[in-house]
Design a protein around this nucleic acid. Structure first.
Lengths: 173, 173
DNA sequence: TTGATTGCAAAGCATTTGCATGCTA
DNA sequence: TAGCATGCAAATGCTTTGCAATCAA
């Protein structure tokens, strides 16, 4: 069973469709960038992704990675997130249900969580103002369980790709 | 009754205290910037505030406004917010209870709202992960009631100071 | 063949920093 | 008087743009 060839079929189809609808073209660079992006389950900056792409094909430039990430975002495959260090991170969006982030200001760990209750309240709040919601962002900063034990004097969010802990959770159960 | 002299007494005291504790100095520029910031109930960028300050004293530079806003934030009088146009806005923080933002992507209007229910759920979620929360940010983007009626082709958030609609609200009542 | 795509270098933009001068405490 | 504050210019860091060469359709 040849698994490799079959990975991310759906995502690639979506990308192709988006590209064609917009009258754009499929290129080797875009394919490679998409491929590597999909393989990396992490929060990546354009810079981070650029270096990963470099390993496979040193001829690809910064600009193309930036532009492709924008494309992926438009296509609904990626989502931009910011954690407060003034950089734009990208995460998978397709088939990843909407989630929010808890960011540890000591070690930089990012916990993803899903809360249907919070989403419901948000929708209710929007309704109340006649607001038609397109998207939202909830981030909570603080110290994670581990960092509360180890008292450290490092307070900056470390650079580099942010580890991702994915958690589905509702307050109730 | 001389009202003018008595405005923002508490805020100014807090600022002075902060300044002295840090071994810094009270200056005419800082006083002016604080004064104007406090008088302006809006979401302001450093740039916005700079121009307001310019009107009163053209000798004040960009840098000082930037630096002073940082100071005000440290002192707990201001809070940084971002609405997605890649600029840092500042809003009053002292004696303004924590609130969240609903941002109209058509006209740029910003609605502030407070939801105790959402805050509660956030706290519960943090507890669940042993997270000690320091602060959070919830923003919701969409089309406001007015903009849903007037179909316009303007989609960018307009530049300049963002109008602020302040609303205290809970979903329940 | 046409026009989108690429990569480089340069430009943009918001923000920060170095430094000589000015001014509080 | 000591040393923090200021304002200018220059530097920074991330992102975008102009453009000539390349390449997909």
């Amino acid at each position: 069973m040849v698994k490799k060839k079959e990975e991310f079929v759906e995502e690639k189809e979506i990308f192709l469709e988006h590209i064609q609808k917009a009258g754009l073209r499929k290129t080797a660079q875009r394919d490679l960038i998409l491929e590597i992006f999909l393989r990396t389950e992490d929060h990546l900056t354009s810079e981070d992704l650029y270096w990963l792409v470099q390993k496979q094909d040193p001829s690809v430039g910064h600009t193309t990675v930036y532009r492709t990430l924008k494309l992926l975002t438009e296509a609904g495959l990626a989502r931009e997130v910011r954690f407060g260090d003034n950089k734009t991170y990208y995460e998978h969006h397709f088939k990843h249900e909407h989630h929010d982030h808890m960011i540890c200001t000591e070690c930089g760990k990012v916990i993803e969580f899903v809360s249907a209750e919070i989403e419901d309240l948000q929708d209710q709040m929007a309704d109340k103002f006649g607001f038609r919601l397109s998207h939202h962002s909830l981030r909570m900063w603080g110290a994670c369980a581990e960092c509360q034990q180890t008292s450290s004097d490092v307070h900056a969010v470390p650079s580099g790709a942010q580890p991702r802990v994915r958690v589905r959770s509702s307050v109730g159960n």
